[in-house]
Amino acid sequence: MTQDITVTLTVNGRTVTRAAGAHLSLLRWLRDVADVTDPKYGCGEGVCGACTVLVDGEPVSSCIVLAAQVDAAEVTTVAGLAGADGVLDGLQQAFLEHGAAQCGFCTPGMLMAATELVSRGVRLDRDTIRGELHGNLCRCTGYQAIVDAIASVAGGERG
């Protein structure tokens, strides 16, 4: 009764084609089928943002998108941010230096939301960063170090 469906996605530059359950969310497809485990399950409701990935450059909650719906798309997860040599990108480096990851579970989604935010290329003040990040929950940092890290890359350093 389970319908398998073939989906091809380019995940962090690697093309993956798999036949798997048609009902699988992009999150489950990535984690259970493609062994890309950096996006996390936190709620399954699209609320917490731990599963945030970029689909063709736009942030989505991978838990509430079906893999079949985004067939042929380009998917970027946090594991795709670092260079081939493993060197962290600028935003990741800022997260490291500011202590923006504590338990680290929200970090993969938070970084993808932040990546898209910074990619808009506009200077972001701290209130704007907070407003734009409201869809990504963190329970450890109080967001302080996360806002610090993003502000250090996109303007709006603490005065």
Partner: peptide, 23 residues
């Protein structure tokens, strides 16, 4: 001193394997 934590780089790179990440 405010040093970067030694577990931070892996968490930020997305390579840390949490409990549910093991298969």
């Amino acid at each position: 001193r405010p040093l970067a934590r030694h577990d931070a780089a892996e968490k930020i790179a997305g390579t840390t394997r949490y409990a549910a990440d093991l298969a």
